[in-house]
Design a binder for these strands. Structure first.
Lengths: 117, 117
DNA sequence: CATATAAATAACTATATGGTTTTGTAACTG
DNA sequence: CAGTTACAAAACCATATAGTTATTTATATG
């Protein structure tokens, strides 16, 4: 898989709110089993397993083994690559916020208002 | 469209190499007509128009009017929001970059100065 | 007015995506 | 060994996506 295809897979994986929520959960709680991940969602276990397969193909998670459980682990490398792509555009989006600290302020407002996705 | 849906649309728009190339072209050359955008691709004009519709729905481009031409303009706001989402994971991906460029340096300085994290 | 250019729209096709329910399997437990 | 838990795999369905060719619309020009 070349760089472009990896970015395809990463952005595609990030384009679903369930998958972003899974990543957020892993960032908060560390490794989590599939059942524990599925619990908050109004969705069947196989649906979550499918989302995990998408995340795994993008390299955003890896799987371990603990008895019957397959703990899911966050892998940040693709997030770094996606960020790297976006950083090339910073001169365009920086202007939207004026200065960097304005960006941070804006982010905090967005998160406070949205309750973090 | 709420924050989550906007992120969906943004990441989904960014998940295609043709659309990323279009954004890169607009960042380099400024506003560009549809025909000029289509030229480098082995793809029909309607296919490019469809990609532009995806980008426009995500708010990543806007359209002007110049005689028959509909110049395409880069809109960076959604890139800022996507970057904002990724920045929440920086502690995971920071290690991946050796020497970071000025954005991240500045981010770290700001945070250090503010006594955060 | 007739024609050319730029782009959008329509109609169609093939494949991908996101969900379901059902079934299968690997590992523990009594 | 029988049952349970945790998960994956299969089969199916509806909708979305990415492309095509053909047609239409808007604007400009001879």
């Amino acid at each position: 898989m070349d760089d472009s295809a990896r970015l395809d897979a990463t952005f595609q994986a990030l384009s679903d709110p369930t998958r972003r929520a899974i990543l957020a959960r892993l960032a908060r709680d560390g490794d989590v089993s599939v059942m524990e991940l599925a619990e908050p969602f109004a969705m069947s276990q196989p649906a979550i397993s499918k989302h995990l397969k998408v995340l795994e193909k993008a390299g955003l998670v890896s799987r371990g083994r603990d008895a019957q459980k397959r703990p899911v682990h966050l892998e940040a490398q693709p997030l770094a690559e996606a960020t790297g792509w976006l950083i090339d555009y910073r001169k365009y989006w920086q202007a939207q916020f004026g200065r960097l600290d304005d960006l941070l302020d804006e982010l905090q407002k967005l998160e406070a208002a949205a309750g973090k996705n």
